[in-house]
């Protein structure tokens, strides 16, 4: 849906429904229907998660896929590629093999009508450059995910930007993951650590340091100094991987930003994300003229499933209720 102020569209990565997929309470068709029912008409998938018998993409599956798109009024938006550099126990994939792997992912995307392939953050600038001509030939955009703790001034991302600016390839771009805008520590994560037996004083220390946007570089060392064990150390590691940066930094790169992974951990009953301030992010996307999809990526299940029932459908629904509000959509 669009309005006069912007052309931002809404969608869901079916990764969001991984709990129900895993427990076999939702089929792939159920996931597509759930997205469609909340007006999230853009469908993103992880082929390795959603395609039975992957890597064998059958004609039957492709036909069924397009029949579902028509039935539910949905549109394929993106696939996620993985660079399994340690595919073989005894050696590493060569750069040529890595490029070939991306080419295969591009072929899968083309067959499913996906205009975008996400390149996982471990994809090197050399591999992006090597795969770009094939992506151009196939009319697919290959976007490097900007995933915490990386950000737009990080050397790894700067190298990717150098390739994009030097080659001017229309196939290359960025896919920001909203976990780079974790302003407040996700309580589902700290509460899980407490349930796993973490020392409350150390948990408080980690959460307060994060929420004050303090320096988390040596946090894992500090946890060791304070006598923390594996659970506290794990929490510190997580805290040093989330980041909060100014969403306005995206404005400098807006022509390269083609798709947003709308990561979230907890949508409250008030339809607000507890830790990621979408009310600060979406106005920036509108201001920058972003016209791609906000694609939900729910990742809270793993933090609550030990103690609470997971309802990914409701969590995604709440996120889209928030998007509708922030995008000014009129029903």
């Amino acid at each position: 849906m669009t309005n006069a102020r912007h052309s931002i569209k809404r969608g869901v990565s079916l990764y969001s429904y991984q709990e129900e997929t895993f427990l076999r309470t939702m089929s792939l068709e159920d996931c597509i229907r759930a997205a469609s029912e909340i007006g999230a008409h853009g469908i993103e998938i992880i082929p390795e998660q959603s395609i039975p018998d992957f890597t064998n993409l059958t004609e039957e599956f492709v036909d069924t896929w397009f029949a579902w798109m028509e039935k539910y009024g949905t549109t394929p938006t993106a696939t996620n590629s993985y660079l399994d550099t340690k595919l073989y126990p005894d050696r590493w994939l060569t750069v040529e093999e890595q490029i070939a792997s991306i080419r295969t992912d591009i072929d899968v995307a083309v067959r499913l009508g996906m205009p975008i392939v996400k390149a996982t953050i471990n994809t090197s600038p050399e591999v992006m450059e090597g795969a770009a001509p094939y992506a151009e030939e196939k009319g697919v955009q290959l976007l490097i995910e900007v995933h915490a703790p990386f950000h737009y001034e990080h050397p790894w991302i700067l190298e990717h930007l150098e390739v994009m600016h030097r080659t001017q390839s229309p196939a290359l771009g960025l896919m920001p993951d909203m976990m780079t805008y974790v302003k407040r520590f996700p309580r589902v994560v700290s509460e899980r650590a407490l349930r796993d037996g973490a020392n409350p004083a150390i948990v408080d220390y980690i959460v307060e340091l994060y929420d004050d946007h303090g320096d988390t570089h040596a946090l894992m060392d500090i946890v060791n100094y304070r006598g923390g064990g594996p659970v506290e150390y794990g929490l510190a590691r997580v805290a040093s991987h989330y980041i909060w940066t100014d969403p306005r930094k995206m404005l400098d790169h807006m022509p390269l930003i083609k798709h947003i992974q709308a990561k979230f951990y907890e949508m409250t009953e008030d339809e607000v994300e507890y830790s990621i301030p979408y009310d600060e992010i979406i106005p920036v996307l509108i201001e920058g003229g972003f016209d791609g999809y906000l694609s939900s990526e729910y990742e809270g299940n793993r933090h609550i499933q030990d103690a609470f029932p997971v309802d990914s459908v409701e969590q995604v629904r709440r996120q889209h209720a928030m998007f509708v509000r922030l995008l000014g959509e009129v029903a």
């Binding site: 895993f22 390795e48 998660q49 039975p52 018998d53 890597t55 595919l87 073989y88 126990p89």
Partner: peptide
Amino acid sequence: VNGHRYEFAELAVKADEYWFTTD
């Protein structure tokens, strides 16, 4: 797995075959 029977040690070279999430 996937209808094929292997010795466990053989899996170390089966890089082109996947174990799906619901199988």
